[in-house]
């Protein structure tokens, strides 16, 4: 079976801000996401997680190596993927409804139909009654829901999510995580989920990939998560297997986090 998404010896270098040197953010990274699989990538802050996701989205060309989407090398924007960004990505001048419609509008869908679909998606993410609000009139959690609806309305084969819930408070976050799992279980898209929160990664995923600290980031290990589904992200944290997995992965991740922390302090 061909992977939905595969990194094939991907490296990413950036021009150094001061001087002519090159900063190697990601080095020789290879891993794959199978169709319908939920894969999380964890790593210390600043290690190159967003960079990897931008490469998978086709927003950034790797300095070396390539990305395969359903077996075909990716050359432009990854049109099979939906992307949820780490920071605010909604158009501030558009209402919630107009933001959700945007993708359909770019595809020239008739106004009535796209509006009806968008209303339905806003209902699914629990935002009925907020259609005409502008992003600044919504809470952080609501804006994430709008972004989720905006991405999912296009029914992408693959979801790329960059710490989508990291800015939310813990209750809202667990609600959204459960909602995401429910939406995902309905049609099993391939998901590449980025986070710096190991518990979130274990609770959501089929597989967790641990990245090394910067620079020259690469995968250090892979862990299959054999927790039963459907899951409740709050309850599953209490299960003994969860604690075991957490310990095993944390042993690998801990030294990297400490390295990352030491670098950040310098």
């Amino acid at each position: 079976m061909t992977a939905a998404l595969a990194f094939d010896h991907v490296s990413c270098a950036f021009a150094e801000r001061n001087g002519g040197g090159r900063y190697i953010a990601v080095k020789d990274t290879s891993f794959a996401v199978a169709p319908g699989e939920f894969v999380s990538v964890v790593g210390p802050t600043g290690c190159g997680k967003s960079t990897l996701l931008n490469v998978a989205a086709g927003l950034l060309a790797p300095s070396a190596g390539r990305v395969l989407v359903d077996g075909a090398p990716l050359a432009a924007i990854n049109s099979r993927a939906g992307y949820m960004f780490q920071s605010e990505a909604l158009m501030p001048w558009r209402s919630a409804l107009a933001n959700v419609i945007a993708g359909l509008e770019f595809r020239h869908m008739a106004r009535e139909e796209s509006a009806a679909r968008a209303r339905d998606w806003l209902r699914r993410v629990g935002l009925t009654g907020f259609e005409d609000r502008y992003p600044h009139q919504l809470s952080g959690g609501m804006r994430k829901r709008v972004a989720l609806a905006q991405t999912l309305i296009l029914d992408p084969q693959m979801l790329l999510m960059d710490e989508p819930f990291s800015a939310l408070d813990i209750q809202t976050r667990q609600l959204m995580e459960n909602e995401l799992l429910e939406l995902w279980s309905a049609d099993r898209k391939s998901v590449l989920f980025i986070t710096h929160d190991l518990e979130e990664a274990i609770a959501l995923s089929d597989r967790v990939i641990v990245l090394s600290a910067a620079p020259e980031t690469h995968p250090l290990g892979e862990f299959g998560i054999d927790l039963p589904r459907p899951r409740d992200v709050a309850e599953i944290r209490m299960s003994p297997r969860f604690v075991e997995l957490h310990e095993a992965i944390w042993r690998v991740l801990k030294s990297e986090v400490l390295k990352g922390y030491a670098q950040a302090k310098r």
Binding site: A57, A89, A102, F106
Partner: peptide, 24 residues
């Protein structure tokens, strides 16, 4: 980020001009 988001949602170059740059 708003720009990258619009591109991921399928906006062409002309659509970016009309739906992102112009309103902004």
């Amino acid at each position: 980020v708003v720009l990258a988001n619009a591109r991921m949602l399928g906006a062409s170059k002309r659509q970016l001009l009309r739906y992102i740059y112009l309103p902004s």
